[in-house]
Amino acid sequence: MKSEHPSKSKVTLEDLLQLKRAERPPVEFWPEFEQELRAKQLAAIVQTRSSWRDWVGRKTLIRLCMPLGAAAVVAMTFSSIRSVGPQVMPDESTVGQLASGLVTINSVVTDSGDVAVIVGEKSASNIEVAVNAASSSTDVQSEAVAVVPVRAVQVAKINNFGSTNFAARAFDANPVMQVLSEPTLVQMVGRAISVSSRAPITEPLAQVATPRDNRRTRLLAYSVSFDPHAADSLDAVRSRDRITHRLSDEAIYDSITRLGLSGDRVSIKF
């Protein structure tokens, strides 16, 4: 029987590894290799330049974009604040002019002989309008008479709050004329203005409370109400406040150990 490897007793690992040295590419391989290398070298040079230019371009763009973006943000903030913020308060002279306007209207109306309007000259807050209905006035006209003094005072107040309501401004511009021409409309607008003027004007963003704030508030309220004696202590309240402020959303979610559902109730155990 012929042995498979008759001389293997003389071969070592190093000898076998020498065979790996003999694994070489043929001579024809190298011209092709060189050609490919040249092409890659050229491509690398071109790529390096273009990427360098891109980098410079990007850097310039970033340099320009940052101040432009910041300016845009500032401009948008200003415009939004101006659109929701308080208007310029009318000073006393403005109200005085309004009063004089009323006086003018008064004189016009008086000339017509139907209504008499008397306006205090000194201060807008003391505007008092007295409308004396003529003996021939209708019920509607007498109702308008009753409305005018109240509305005049309210308009002045609305102006002091700096309302942005268009109806209020329109009414403000010429209240008596409105009263005389459209008494029913005046009543309706008056009600609307009085309602809107009662609501304090605050910025919309200030009214938005994040869920985190709500959660903190609830936790704080709970912790304060939990121990009434400790609530008296200012330090205790401060420390609880600190603790609740440290609680992040993740920490709250992570601290949930048990979640139960029973009927329409969800119970969470921390």
Partner: peptide, 14 residues
């Protein structure tokens, strides 16, 4: 594997 002297010798051994 290039058939060099060393390689040939080794292969012959094997």
């Amino acid at each position: 594997i290039t058939d060099e002297d060393k390689t040939a010798q080794l292969v012959n051994q094997l």
